[in-house]
Amino acid sequence: MSDAASALKSLLLEKSVRTGTFTLASGKESDLYIDCRMTAMDPFGASLIGQVGWAAVREKIQAEGLEIDAIGGMTLGADPISLAVGMTSASSHPDEALQVFTVRKEPKGHGRGKQIEGNFSSGNTIVVVDDVITTGGSTLKAIDAIEREGGKVAFALVLVDREEGGRQAIEARGIPVVALYSRSTLLG
Rank of each mutant, 00 (worst) to 15 (best):
K28Q: 14
I81P: 04
V132K: 05
G45F: 11
G166K: 09
A179E: 07
L24N: 10
A40H: 08
M1K: 11
A70I: 03
T135P: 08
K114N: 04
G86T: 01
S138Q: 07
G72W: 01
I126V: 15
Q115F: 02
S89T: 05
D3Y: 07
G188R: 14
T75Q: 03
L32T: 15
A90R: 14
V129N: 03
L157E: 06
K105Q: 00
D42Y: 09
R18V: 04
I133K: 02
I170A: 08
P43L: 10
L186E: 10
A169L: 06
R148D: 12
E163Q: 15
K15T: 09
L159C: 13
A97H: 15
E67C: 09
V160G: 13
V100Y: 05
E64C: 06
P94S: 12
R167A: 04
T185C: 12
I143R: 01
F22L: 04
D42I: 12
D3M: 15
Y33E: 06
G136V: 00
I81D: 01
A169S: 14
E67L: 10
S89G: 05
I34K: 05
L98W: 09
F101G: 09
A25P: 06
A4T: 11
T39K: 11
A4Q: 13
G137N: 09
S26L: 10
L11T: 10
D131L: 00
V132R: 05
I116K: 00
N124S: 11
A145S: 01
S47K: 13
C36T: 13
A142M: 00
R183I: 14
V132E: 03
A25R: 15
V52Q: 05
H93D: 15
L8R: 13
D79Y: 01
A169P: 09
L13N: 10
L76F: 10
M41W: 08
G20K: 03
S30M: 00
V178E: 09
A25G: 03
G174Q: 10
G77P: 03
K105H: 05
R173M: 13
V132F: 02
D131P: 00
R18T: 11
N119C: 05
R162T: 08
V127G: 02
S10E: 15
T21I: 10
K28N: 14
V100C: 10
T21G: 07
G165P: 09
I81E: 05
L186A: 12
A172N: 15
P107R: 02
L159H: 09
L186D: 11
P107W: 00
L24K: 08
H93Q: 13
V127K: 02
L159A: 12
A63M: 04
G174Y: 04
P80T: 05
I81Y: 00
I61K: 08
G20A: 10
S92L: 14
F155T: 02
S184P: 12
R18E: 13
Q115K: 07
Y33S: 04
E147Q: 15
